[in-house]
């Protein structure tokens, strides 16, 4: 059951990811991205990370893709402006480097087949809201506060850069 679920979700995730970069119409790209996000949420569910799956759908598939679509709408692209997906001069190099990275990571993962992972005794319940909340407001409280500064920086920065100021 779990293997079948993994297979379906993983396949859909890859199809979505390839679709994002090959689709000619940016709206299709955004919709492929939604497909990718939903399949990832399915993968998270199969890893018992319920909270992560829910946030993945709400934040990424919901809010962020809507923002993408708004931007695409505001850009108002005509069909003839859209570039065709093709490999130019740097294409072979890009493909080579990507394949190299894929090979490196793939070999690393391949070597793990049949290996045993260090078991974290608390790992069973790690994906629930409760355990996540305990970690966030317990051990990682400092990190949580640093994220507050990080978000504030992003906010201040975007306001400062976007504000129209003539001096």
């Amino acid at each position: 059951m779990q293997v079948v679920l993994f297979g379906i979700c993983a396949l859909l995730a890859i199809v979505g990811a390839v679709g994002v970069i090959t689709a000619r119409n940016p709206v299709y790209s955004a919709l492929f991205l939604v497909l990718n996000f939903f399949s990832l949420a399915g993968l998270y569910l199969s890893l018992e990370a319920q909270f992560l799956a829910v946030t993945q759908v709400i934040v990424y598939a919901g809010a962020i893709v809507v923002l993408f679509l708004f931007v695409i709408m505001l850009l108002n692209l005509r069909p003839e402006d859209l570039p065709r997906f093709r490999l130019d001069r740097t294409g072979p190099l890009v493909v080579l480097l990507s394949l190299g990275l894929l090979l490196g990571v793939g070999m690393g993962i391949w070597s793990l087949l049949g290996a045993s992972f260090p078991q974290d005794p608390q790992a069973q319940a790690v994906g629930t809201v409760e355990s996540l909340g305990r970690a966030l407001f317990g051990r990682y409280l400092v990190g949580f506060e640093v994220v507050a500064v990080l978000l504030l920086v992003a906010m201040i920065g975007s306001v400062m850069l976007a504000k129209r100021r003539f001096q």
């Binding site: 400092v142 920086v153 920065g157 850069l161």
Partner: peptide
């Protein structure tokens, strides 16, 4: 803890991206 290192790295980087532009 590398999680915290990462958060510090990002806080620094985001501020610097803005200041660069």
């Amino acid at each position: 803890d590398l999680v915290l290192t990462f958060l510090g790295l990002e806080t620094m980087s985001v501020a610097l991206y803005v200041l660069t532009g």
